Simulated assay, not measured.
Amino acid sequence: MLVVDQAGWHISKNLKVPEGLHLMFLPSHSPELQPAERLWPLVDEPIANRSFENLEQLEELLCASCRSLWEQRELIRGLMSFHWWPQIETSL
């Protein structure tokens, strides 16, 4: 079983699912079931509407963005913490 959202490429009639694999679809508009969905705007913002000369430029910007997010742990916790999510204290 593979749990996926209902993005167009996951529900396309042309999608070929290998034998033995069953797709289980998340309900529409349910980011709490896939908490990482709430991080995508933070990752996408630095690269949106930009072009890059090469892959290295893109990689450099993404790495800088990730380093910046690493320093904003409270922001990440605020986006990722749901009432049902186990609370684990870390020393990160």
Score class of each variant (00 low, 15 high):
M80G: 05
L58S: 03
N49P: 02
W70M: 09
F52D: 06
L21G: 01
G8A: 12
I11S: 12
K16V: 11
I88Y: 07
L23E: 11
L42P: 03
F82Y: 15
L2E: 08
L58A: 04
T90E: 14
G20Y: 06
L2V: 13
E74L: 13
F82I: 01
R77T: 02
E53G: 10
V4M: 03
H83Q: 11
N54C: 13
P18S: 13
L26C: 02
H22K: 14
M24C: 13
W9Y: 15
L62S: 08
N14T: 13
H22T: 14
T90P: 05
V17G: 08
F52L: 09
I88Q: 12
E74F: 02
M80C: 14
H10G: 01
E71M: 05
G8H: 00
I11V: 15
W85H: 13
L75R: 13
F25P: 00
L58W: 00
G78K: 05
R50A: 05
L79F: 02
E89C: 11
V4G: 00
C66E: 08
L79S: 03
S28N: 03
S12E: 07
L23T: 09
P86T: 03
S51C: 12
L33M: 15
L92G: 04
V17Q: 09
R73D: 03
D5P: 01
W70S: 12
W70Q: 12
A7C: 09
Q72C: 08
P46R: 09
S65M: 10
Q6E: 09
I47Y: 01
L21A: 06
P86E: 04
E74G: 03
E59A: 14
P35N: 05
I76Y: 02
S91M: 04
I11P: 05
L61K: 07
R50D: 03
P35S: 04
H83W: 04
I11G: 07
E32D: 15
G78H: 07
